[in-house]
Design a protein around this nucleic acid. Sequence first.
DNA 1: TCATAACTAGACTTTACATCA
DNA 2: AGTGATGTAAAGTCTAGTTAT
Length: 349
Amino acid sequence: MELALSLGEAQKPLFPFLDKSPQQLMVHAGGGNKDLGFCMGLGGGRRSEKDHQSNEDERRSGSSSSDPPVQLDLLPFSPVPRGQPPAQPRFPWLAQNFTSEQGSFNGPAKGLEVHRKSLAAEETEDGAAAAAMSSSPNSTASSFQMDFAVYRSGRNKRDFEAGNNEVETERASSRNGSDEELENGLGGRKKLRLTKDQSAFLEESFKEHHTLNPKQKLALANQLNLRPRQVEVWFQNRRARTKLKQTEVDCEYLKRCCENLTEENRRLHKELQELRALKTSQPFYMQLPATTLTMCPSCERVVTTTTVTPTAATATATTTTTMAAATATAAASTTTTTSTTLTLAKAGI
DNA sequence: TCATAACTAGACTTTACATCA
DNA sequence: AGTGATGTAAAGTCTAGTTAT
């Protein structure tokens, strides 16, 4: 006896996302015919350095041909056509009016605009970027200054090197003498708690690109009055958090897939038993014309149809059962239709 | 206890420089 | 002397994991 079982639509892999490049794709709940309601980007692991570099090069050259960065979006999926700008992020402070006085913090809304301008300038002209990054009181970037105080240079060689000539500042309110002693290496690390505005600004920037080139890092650091090393670390941690959430979503998705497949397996076993029972009740079926059993996708009842074929009377009669083949509606919907073909290629059932 | 800023280690790429055919 | 290939060290950035606040 030869028994062939085929799960899923013909010519479609069971886990199509496994073959996809790290793009944003819609995830369906397998045989459940229901969207999971979230959008997830599935990456193929760490991007190679070369890829990263080419991406950086594209950014520097102003090219937008590269794919968007892997993004996790737990909100209900609402696809944005490629080439169109994403929807404006919903941040309450975007509508707020902050003062634009010299030396005061204008809020992320304006700050981000300034940041975007500076980044755009830097991507098109290095000189412009340098001007934007300068700490000149008349520069555009300098209008986005928080009420911070200037403090010392970095705590170690790496920070010092990364800091270059930038003015390193921090909130004066978070500082006191002992802190400075710690900062100077007499104690351990000093953890800075970023302000809400700083975090929001960084988040907005992260939405635009998940990695920073040195100029972007420096520009961000200047605008937020942070050390470039802090910006770098923040992006590293942010990527790690994104990946962690991504993993959780992936696990949830695979869990649902497993549940659906378990259910599908159970249903197929049940059908197989029915078919065997049918065979037992019709011992002379081999002399009958080929029989096609079609299962109604809604009630899951087997409907038997008989077709006359030239080989019906031969010893290789074939019984084919097609289950849940809701092909009529599948074309009009985005849900995945599970078509199960059970072929009992007979020789000695 | 949790979130997260900061750190470390190791891997990788790029770049500058030296050497050699 | 000029040139291309090759090796090497330094610098920079990344991820993964950990520590500290």
